[in-house]
Simulated scan of single mutants.
Amino acid sequence: MSEKESAAVLLAVNGTLMRGLKLSPNMAAAGATFLKEAVTEPVYRLWTINDEHPAMIRVTDGSGVGVAVEVWEVPAAGLAGILLNEPPGLSIGKVNLDDGSTVLGVIGEPALVEGQREITEFGGWRAYIAATGDA
């Protein structure tokens, strides 16, 4: 295996890819390793998409919060499989964590959240599903 094939990237996930949730098997299939729970810089807002998964959007108007995420180490070769199995409207972009680091992360397209319920006040998907009883 070449060095490029064995390279790994850090990926912050904020929804159903998190441990024990609906799409967490996709992380295992990609050979990902859980590293830590973390929080983003307070520059994001969060929506629920039909109560199936969240969408995190970066904002620049000062209204963002720190969102709870999990940081995983993902083999570079496995990253494409994770992205291909994400719901439409979600993509991989750069996410700023509250420790000043920048990692890859799952983010939503602004059009995806139109007409959806904003759940920023919960601070994360797990807190939202715990409060509402949704999974």
Rank of each mutant, 00 (worst) to 15 (best):
S2F: 11
E3L: 15
K4Q: 15
E5M: 10
S6V: 09
A8N: 14
L10E: 10
L10W: 03
N14A: 14
N14E: 06
G15L: 07
G15Y: 08
L17K: 11
M18A: 13
L23D: 15
L23T: 12
S24P: 04
S24F: 13
N26P: 04
M27G: 12
A28F: 11
A28Q: 15
A29L: 12
A30D: 02
G31E: 05
A32S: 13
T33R: 13
T33I: 11
L35M: 10
L35R: 11
K36M: 07
K36W: 00
K36R: 14
E37V: 04
E37F: 06
A38G: 00
A38K: 00
E41F: 08
E41H: 11
P42T: 04
P42C: 02
V43Y: 06
Y44W: 03
W47H: 03
T48E: 04
T48Y: 03
T48N: 03
H53Y: 15
H53L: 08
H53R: 10
P54V: 01
M56H: 03
R58K: 13
V59S: 10
T60C: 09
T60Y: 12
T60Q: 13
D61G: 09
D61S: 09
G62C: 12
G62E: 10
S63W: 08
S63Q: 13
G64Y: 04
V65W: 10
V67S: 01
V67C: 04
E73K: 15
V74I: 05
V74Q: 01
V74H: 03
A76S: 14
A76H: 10
G78N: 02
L79T: 05
L83Q: 14
L83P: 00
N85S: 12
N85W: 06
E86P: 06
P87T: 07
P87L: 08
S91M: 11
S91L: 12
S91Y: 13
S91E: 11
K94C: 07
V95K: 02
D98S: 12
D99F: 04
G100K: 00
G100R: 01
L104C: 04
L104P: 01
V106N: 11
I107A: 05
I107Q: 07
G108W: 06
E109D: 14
P110M: 02
P110S: 02
V113Q: 07
E114V: 15
R117Q: 11
E118R: 02
T120R: 07
T120E: 05
E121W: 06
G124V: 00
G124D: 00
W125I: 03
R126I: 14
A127G: 09
A130S: 13
A131L: 08
T132M: 05
T132Q: 05
